[in-house]
C-alpha cells in the first residue's frame, strides 16, 4: 500500500514536472519543473532499492546539470521568453503530437504484446537472462553501491576509462568553443603591455 502511494505521488510529480518543462514559456520555470521531475525519479530509485543511483541522480542531475542550464539561461539573458501560443510552422504541433503518440503506442505495444506481464515480460523484451550479479544477494541494510562498484570496476572497467576520457574531451572542447578569441588577440598583439 505504501509502495503504491509512493509510486503514484512520484509519478504525478514526474509527469507534472515534464509537462511543466514543455508548456512553460519562461526557461527558468521550465528548469525548475525539470528539477521537480528529477527529484521524482530519484524517489522512484529509492523505492526500488537503488540508493546510490538516487543519490547520484540528485547530485548530478538536479544539482550539476540544472545549475549549468540555469547558469547559461542567466548568462544569455533571463528575460527572454518565448510566446508559445504562436505557432511558426503551420501544423507542426499536431504533427508532433501524432508522432509522439505513435512512439508511445509503439513502446506500450512492445510492452503489453511481448508476452505475459511480470518478470517474464521483462525477459521477453530483453532476451534471455544472463545474470552478472544478482541484487537479491544484498542484505536489507547493505547499499547497492558495493555491487555497482564490483560490476563497474571488473566487467566494465574499459568503458569506465572511456567515460573518463569522454569527460576530459568534453571539458576541453567546451573551453575551446566558448573561449573569447577577441580578448586573446589583444594580449598577443601587445606582449610588452599585457600586464599594464
Amino acid at each position: 500500500m505504501v509502495d503504491l502511494l509512493v509510486f503514484l505521488v512520484s509519478a504525478a510529480i514526474i509527469l507534472g514536472g515534464a509537462i511543466g518543462v514543455v508548456l512553460n514559456n519562461h526557461p527558468v520555470r521550465a528548469a525548475l519543473s525539470l528539477v521537480a521531475s528529477f527529484f521524482g525519479v530519484a524517489v522512484l530509485f529509492v523505492a526500488q532499492g537503488a540508493h546510490f543511483l538516487a543519490f547520484v541522480q540528485v547530485v548530478v542531475y538536479a544539482g550539476a546539470i540544472v545549475v549549468l542550464i540555469l547558469f547559461v539561461i542567466m548568462l544569455l539573458g533571463v528575460d527572454r521568453t518565448e510566446d508559445i501560443r504562436f505557432e511558426p510552422l503551420a501544423g507542426q504541433r499536431s504533427a508532433a503530437a501524432v508522432i509522439a503518440g505513435m512512439v508511445l503506442a509503439l513502446v506500450l505495444g512492445g510492452l503489453f504484446l511481448s508476452g505475459p506481464g511480470g518478470s517474464d515480460g521483462a525477459v521477453a523484451l530483453t532476451g534471455t537472462k544472463s545474470r552478472t550479479a544478482p541484487i537479491s544477494q544484498l542484505n536489507e541494510s547493505d547499499a547497492d553501491v558495493q555491487l555497482l562498484a564490483e560490476d563497474l570496476f571488473t566487467r566494465n572497467v574499459l568503458a569506465f576509462e572511456a567515460t573518463a576520457l569522454l569527460l576530459t574531451i568534453a571539458t576541453v572542447g567546451a573551453v575551446v568553443m566558448v573561449r573569447n578569441r577577441g580578448a586573446e588577440e589583444v594580449v598577443v598583439d601587445e606582449p610588452g603591455t599585457a600586464r599594464g
Binding site: 526500488q48 532499492g49 537503488a50 543511483l53 547520484v56 541522480q57 548530478v60 542531475y61 550539476a64 546539470i65 549549468l68 542550464i69 547559461v72 511480470g118 518478470s119 521483462a122 525477459v123 530483453t126 537472462k129 545474470r131 552478472t132 550479479a133 544478482p134 541484487i135 537479491s136 547497492d144 555491487l147 555497482l148 564490483e150 560490476d151 563497474l152 566487467r155 566494465n156 568503458a159 567515460t163 569522454l166 569527460l167 568534453a170 571539458t171 572542447g173 567546451a174 573551453v175 568553443m177 566558448v178
Partner: peptide
C-alpha cells in the same frame, strides 16, 4: 530490479556520465 541483475544499474551510471558530457558540449 525485475531481472535481479546489477548490470542495468551500471548502465544508468554510464547514461548519467554521457548526459553530463552532452550537456557541457551542447551548452557551450
Amino acid at each position: 530490479t525485475a531481472l535481479d541483475d546489477i548490470a542495468g544499474r551500471t548502465a544508468v551510471f554510464f547514461v548519467l556520465v554521457v548526459a553530463a558530457a552532452e550537456v557541457v558540449v551542447g551548452l557551450s
